[in-house]
Design a protein around this nucleic acid. Structure first.
Length: 519
DNA sequence: GTAGGGTTAG
């Protein structure tokens, strides 16, 4: 072209973005001034999109500056792409700032801001914005919006909101959408209802690699390793190509179900059969898998041989640290904690786990020294918690905290009952009662074995009025036996608290569910 | 010629 104009430039840039070369689009954008072509709103939307894909915050901000200089700051599409860009670059404050500055918004801009919060671990804010969208606009949420909302519910582990979002999906006839179905599979698994994940999954007509992967991961989280492997085989048989995430799921499944040989075979087949090179995440799963079964030396050697980014390294050494503690390998625990503490990552967790490893090994002095060191330096471990939703109530549980619990004695009785039943059914792992004692006592009593992961159930109920409860999860360490335990908990809870599950899927369809006005 | 959605290890 003798004189390409702004449309020609933008078309070419959009072409590069569409074919997975956003860097080329940015390069072209930099060349425009040399040819005296001024970018317009189409150009900016395209370039900002390229920054989103690359998650280049600095470039994004520079482009944002140009948007202001050239006067496109009130363009709907440009602003929506800016909101999305800031979200993808993990700068939620600026996403919100741009969103607030907009005089005109549509469902795309609302989706971008909801998504920005959902993808940056602020699900609560995402849901609040969704409520505002419903109340302030007359627009119906579309499949893009609902996928983000389901994602927010999943990240929060909020079953009640997730079911309501699912109702919205069904009423809007979006339930055949592959993306939404994947999000629902994931949401139900993260909210403690893997059976619902399975139901949603089985309704997908032609699942792609992503819903398959969601379901493989969902089953793995519940200790259903065999089911994960069957799903994997099923997808291979159907000619669906697995990706790197699928293998993270498969290895995770093997690790949590003690399927070491299968796991190692899958690791080997990754590149040989499927052309996917194992990365740090895969190796972390393998370190975990070897570590859980007590093959600590192999796990340690593998960990040392892996090159990874700082964040991924922290996960790797954190994994090895947990395994060393589980099997009382203080030598490796010391090394793994040192690496974490030196890199200034997960410091509190590293101190606590190392202290517990010492205790398990009978080295009480070292254990206490570390606790003193934590007090002296002010390092505090934020306690983990579990929570349970039944109907409109949420109950939060902290390990070892009985005193602040309104119905603590009842819960203790339930746990004792559960423990007895688990033993009757042949559960050979650690004891539920262990959660009642001090760390040191726990360490003295703990028996170590392949499936001896404890059910770390704490208690301390904080009730938010209305209705009765329960879902106990999160701190439930999932392994094969724990799935059985999970069912038992449901049985006991249902009996004791008279919980009825009224929200089966077809109720949404038949209109008998009154959740419509929830938002 | 332009903006928005799903799966990932301790």
């Amino acid at each position: 072209m003798p004189e390409p104009n702004v449309v020609s430039w933008t078309s070419l840039m959009a072409g590069y973005v569409d074919t997975g070369q956003p860097g080329m689009a940015l390069w072209l954008f930099g060349k425009m001034p040399e040819c005296s072509v001024i970018p317009n709103e189409f150009t900016f939307a395209t370039v900002i999109n390229a920054c989103s894909i690359l998650a280049h915050l600095r470039t994004g901000k520079e482009v944002h500056g140009l948007v202001e200089v050239l006067g496109f700051q009130s363009n709907l599409v440009v602003c929506s792409s800016l909101v999305d860009m800031y979200g993808k670059c993990n700068d939620v404050d600026n996403a919100q700032r741009v969103f607030d500055s907009m005089s005109c918004r549509n469902v795309v801009s609302w989706t971008s801001i909801v998504c920005a919060y959902a993808q940056n671990a602020q699900g609560q804010e995402a849901l609040q914005l969704f409520r505002e969208f419903i109340h302030l606009t007359s627009e119906r949420p579309n499949h893009f919006m609902l996928a983000s909302v389901v994602n927010a519910c999943a990240s929060l582990g909020r079953l009640a909101s997730g079911k309501v979002a699912h109702g919205s999906v069904i009423r809007g006839s979006h339930d055949s959408n592959d993306v939404i179905a994947s999000a629902l599979v994931d949401m139900y698994a993260k909210c403690g209802c893997v059976e619902y994940s399975d139901k949603v999954f089985r309704r997908i007509w032609n699942p792609t690699v992503i819903p398959y992967t969601s379901m493989i991961v969902a089953a793995a989280k519940y200790g259903l390793g065999r089911m994960s492997l069957q799903l994997f085989q099923e997808m291979i048989d159907r000619g669906i190509k697995p990706n790197d995430v699928t293998f993270v799921g498969v290895l995770h499944a093997c690790s949590h179900s003690g399927l070491v040989d299968e796991g190692l075979q899958h690791l080997e087949s990754m590149f040989e059969k499927h052309g996917i090179l194992p990365n740090a995440k895969h190796h972390t799963c393998v370190v975990d898998m070897l570590g859980r079964t007590g093959r600590l030396n192999e796990a340690y050697e593998l960990a040392k041989s892996i090159q990874a980014e700082p964040n991924q390294e922290a996960l790797l050494w954190g994994t090895l640290l947990s395994a060393s503690r589980l099997h009382g390998r203080v030598d490796i625990a010391v090394e793994a904690s040192r690496r974490l503490i030196d890199s200034n990552q997960q410091v509190a967790g590293a101190y606590v786990t190392l202290s517990n490893a010492y205790a398990l090994n009978g080295e009480w002095e070292n254990s206490h020294d570390l606790r003193s060191e934590m007090r002296r330096t002010g390092v505090q471990k934020e306690p983990g918690c579990s929570w349970v939703e039944v109907k409109d109530s949420t109950y939060v549980f902290y390990a070892g905290d009985v005193s602040s619990c309104a119905r603590g004695s009842e819960v203790v009785a339930l746990l004792r009952d559960l423990e007895g039943k688990m033993k009757q059914r042949g559960y050979v792992g650690g004891s539920l009662g262990l959660v009642f004692v001090d760390v040191e006592e726990e360490a003295k009593e703990e028996t170590v074995g392949l499936h001896s992961e404890r059910l770390a159930l704490g208690f301390a109920l904080i009730s938010i009025p209305k209705g009765v409860i329960i879902r106990i999860m999160k701190n439930l360490r999932m392994c094969r036996d724990c799935h059985e335990a999970f069912k038992l908990i449901s049985e006991i809870v249902e009996r004791e608290f008279v919980v009825r599950d009224v929200n089966r899927f077809h109720h949404f369809k038949s209109g008998s569910c009154t959740c419509t006005d929830f938002w």
